[in-house]
């Protein structure tokens, strides 16, 4: 499944990175601890988090994640958005709770990733 199909099915808001939505999703990972994500998130997976500061973008970029999905957090700041644009990181925003969001992703066939 690619990002575009997921975004449409789950009614996510594309904050930035519209031009990268054809990217395929390899799986998903949920965490608010950055080192946890660095240890376990796989290439091309989506990362669901409520952390919305700029270090999230650095981590997503270093790992080559397909997208960051912000959930249960305030609107992303202009600073976060410009950092995401600069690093070519797709930033998505969900208005439903993390539980509902991940359940929706699972129903679409997206599975949890765990790097070897």
């Amino acid at each position: 499944m690619n990002l575009k199909a997921m975004v449409e099915a789950l009614d996510l808001r594309v904050v930035c990175g519209e031009e990268h939505l054809s990217r395929d999703v390899s799986g998903g990972y949920v965490s608010d601890m950055l080192s946890d994500v660095l240890a376990h998130a796989a290439l091309d997976c989506i990362w669901v988090t409520r952390q919305s500061h700029r270090n999230v973008i650095a981590v997503a970029s270093l790992l080559g994640l397909a997208a960051v999905v912000l959930v249960n957090c305030p609107e992303p700041s202009p600073e976060l958005v410009s950092k995401a644009q600069a690093e070519n990181v797709v930033l998505l925003y969900s208005t439903v709770s993390a539980f509902e969001l991940v359940g929706g992703m699972y129903a679409l066939g997206i599975r949890g990733c765990r790097r070897a």
């Binding site: 601890m33 080192s35 660095l38 240890a39 988090t49 500061h53 270090n55």
Partner: peptide, 15 residues
């Protein structure tokens, strides 16, 4: 609070 300090930094380096 920023999501650091999970105590996984050095283990991640070793890995």
């Amino acid at each position: 609070a920023l999501g650091f300090g999970a105590g996984m930094g050095l283990p991640n380096m070793r890995r």
